[in-house]
Design a protein around this nucleic acid. Structure first.
Lengths: 256, 256
DNA sequence: CGTACGTTTGACCAAACTCAACAATAGTGG
DNA sequence: CCACTATTGTTGAGTTTGGTCAAACGTACG
């Protein structure tokens, strides 16, 4: 969901007002009129929808620079809340439309932003059809790529409940799966809100990486380029960071 | 996914070529260049992506008048195949772009079509976070609203496997859940590809419907309009057709 | 009318959920 | 800066849902 504001138009920077929200405060209510769009200035935000049995489905997480609230209808389907304390720039769509008529490129970018959000939603659909462990792994990779100071570190501003609601799991399953990944040596949990990957693929020789590629994709990489593209893809990252770790099960690592 | 072709532009009708595909034939391959868009003229089509364990996730079903292949990137993430024999109009995006520069409204409509597809994907995400029975119920309602001659009849051109792949279930679970709904008197299965709803809400008195509304939504309808809007919504349809039926469990209805 | 394909059904199993008790963390005020 | 407390996270036992494997059945098409 890293739809960057600057991809829309520089003048968006001067549009609208900035509001501050404390953690857990509502930014958009379900069924609010969808006449504004929102940019995260600082902090973390999520969109969600309540399901009737008291469960909720999180639609996405948004961090500094991300745009949210892009919806088609008259009213929002998804509500939004601040996960941490957050600053948000709010602009009326009307003002954006005025911008669009002056600048054809803005319309073009709005289309590509929406198309990108669509692609992300498609990814979320694929995510939800996988096992609990796969969902967690893909989630960690997404967070490490979007919201982390270094690529092997994962900052998690959200609670286990948020993660569970995003992945369609329970918080207990999230907790257990994370601990299992730690036990198997793939990650290191540092307090509630920080996780580190352990086995970066660079620790292994290049042949081992090629073996892994062949094992997962079923064919040899045709070029060095194909191999390195695959390595940085979510699938490649998952394979290198997690599968190698799970090949060498180190038995039970005592926790304390 | 009923994005109607005529909502794009009348001149789209004359764009591109029409091709015929036999059942099970590939229309778009995964990783094909995404330089065309497709309109179903007749028959049924689905988009999908293979997951590595031999499973697949269906992205959506498309019937006569629907547009598919709307994707952002250079290459398609989702492949497409004909479910029945199908006729498809194929137009180059390039030609569409030419249309867009002549007619600003076309760009606007392309945006709203994409936004609508996004809303549908969001719905699919919500669908996938529900129980097997709920998924089936919402699926049946979607099909009855999109692809059926009469509102109480549901035409299912796809196999149980297609349904399972769309809903993230196995074909056995789909089969069992349908049979359970039939046993409870909510639907009637007529051969493999036809289903009929049994308990239309119109069979019950108006107070019963209001009771149901209050039971599900937690508040009284403020107006007749609110009640009838809710009744035709998927949630209202599910409640009226299925919940009433499940209130009165008729025990085992022998099958033959 | 026969055969291949799609579907149903059953027995068994595994993954994830529920409920409940307990532990760790981080935020608060002294 | 420390102790206190509310919040968040972990862990375990038992249950449920949906998946797997395998066999029988029915439908629709050639």
């Amino acid at each position: 969901m890293s739809i960057q504001a600057q991809s829309l138009d520089p003048s968006f920077q001067h549009l609208g007002v900035v509001k501050s929200y404390a953690s857990k405060n509502e930014i958009i209510g379900e069924d609010d009129p969808a006449d504004r769009i929102y940019e995260v200035i600082s902090g973390a935000v999520c969109t969600y929808r309540m399901l009737k049995e008291g469960r909720r489905q999180i639609g996405g997480f948004y961090f500094s620079g991300d745009i949210f609230g892009l919806e088609a209808g008259e009213k929002h389907i998804l509500a939004a809340e601040a996960i941490t304390s957050a600053k948000v720039r709010i602009a009326k769509k009307q003002a954006l439309n005025a911008l669009m008529s002056r600048n054809a490129k803005v319309a073009d970018r709005l289309l590509s932003m929406t198309a990108r959000e669509l692609a992300r939603k498609q990814d979320q659909v694929l995510l939800l059809s996988r096992s609990a462990e796969d969902r967690i792994i893909y989630f960690l990779i997404e967070m490490s790529q979007r919201n982390s100071p270094k690529k092997y570190l994962i900052a998690l501003p959200m609670t286990r409940q948020h993660i569970a609601d995003y992945l369609g799991l329970t918080l207990e399953t999230v907790s257990r799966t994370l601990w299992d990944l730690e036990r198997r040596g793939a990650i290191e949990i540092e307090g509630y809100r920080r996780i580190a990957f352990r086995n970066q693929y660079t620790n292994d020789g290049p042949e081992k990486v090629v073996d892994l590629f062949v094992g997962i994709t079923g064919h040899r990489p045709k070029s060095q380029q194909e191999l390195s593209d695959w390595l940085i893809s979510p699938e490649g990252t998952a394979a290198t960071v997690f599968k190698i770790a799970s090949f060498s099960r180190w038995g039970d690592r005592a926790r304390s």
